[in-house]
Simulated scan of single mutants.
Amino acid sequence: MATYPQEITLKVFVNKTKNCVDFVESDLDFVDVLLSFLTLRASLKCECGGDINTSVSYDLNRDDVNYEEFRGVFIKGAKFVVTDALCISLVEDLISTLNKCVNGDRNHMEVRLVKIKREQVLRILKRSLISDTPLTDVLLQNGEGITPKFSDSLAGKKVEKKVIDKEKKVCKLNMVLTRNKVLYAVASQDFVDLIFSFLTFPLGSLKKHLGSRFRMGCLNNLYGSAERLRSSGYMTAGCAERLLNPKLAPYFNCKNQVIGVEEEKEDLYYTCNGFCKLTALYFSCKSHGYSPYHESNQVTLVDPKSQLGGTISSHGSYCQKLMYMVTDELVVTPLSLESVVSFHNEIADPIKTAELSVTEAEILDVLAVALTSNTALTDAFLGTTVGVFTSVDVKGE
Rank of each mutant, 00 (worst) to 15 (best):
N107H: 15
I88H: 03
V65I: 15
V369Q: 04
M323C: 07
I312T: 13
V163D: 11
L222N: 02
F275H: 12
E360K: 11
V258L: 08
R123W: 11
Y269W: 12
V138K: 04
R230T: 08
C285T: 03
E266D: 09
D132T: 07
V186Q: 09
H315M: 09
N245R: 02
L308P: 00
T378C: 08
S89D: 14
I75K: 00
V81S: 07
S314P: 00
K168W: 10
A187Y: 02
K305M: 05
N297V: 13
R228F: 11
I351V: 15
V21E: 09
E160K: 12
V386K: 09
S131P: 00
V81H: 09
S313A: 08
I164F: 04
V182P: 00
R71G: 03
A42I: 00
L154D: 05
Y269P: 00
E227S: 07
S231C: 08
L281Y: 11
Y269M: 09
K207M: 10
I88N: 03
K18V: 03
C239K: 15
D132L: 02
Y324G: 02
A361Y: 02
V170K: 04
T333C: 13
S36V: 03
S336R: 06
E338Q: 11
L140G: 04
G49I: 04
L40K: 13
F252Y: 09
V341N: 10
N15A: 05
V24P: 01
D27G: 09
A249Q: 11
E362K: 03
N99V: 12
I363P: 00
K321D: 14
S188Q: 07
L206I: 01
N221I: 03
N345M: 11
I259M: 10
V111D: 05
L113W: 10
V14M: 03
T39R: 12
H315N: 08
A361D: 15
D393W: 06
V186H: 03
G233K: 08
T133A: 11
F80G: 01
N99K: 15
H315C: 06
V392T: 08
V102I: 14
K169W: 04
P5T: 03
L38V: 04
C101M: 14
R215M: 15
S339G: 01
G316A: 07
S391Q: 08
D22P: 01
L281D: 15
Q141E: 13
L38M: 08
D365N: 13
N15L: 06
F70H: 12
G49W: 04
V31K: 01
L139S: 05
V258I: 15
H108W: 07
K162Q: 11
S188A: 10
H108K: 13
V369D: 05
V186G: 01
Q141S: 13
T83S: 15
V331M: 12
H294Y: 15
K395Q: 15
E69Q: 13
K255A: 12
E144A: 13
V56N: 05
Y223G: 01
V56G: 01
D379F: 01
D303V: 01
E346P: 01
G72C: 08
Y293C: 10
L210I: 06
Y293P: 02
S391I: 06
F198V: 00
V91W: 12
V369M: 09
V91G: 07
L308S: 05
Y251I: 01
P134H: 09
V138D: 07
E295I: 06
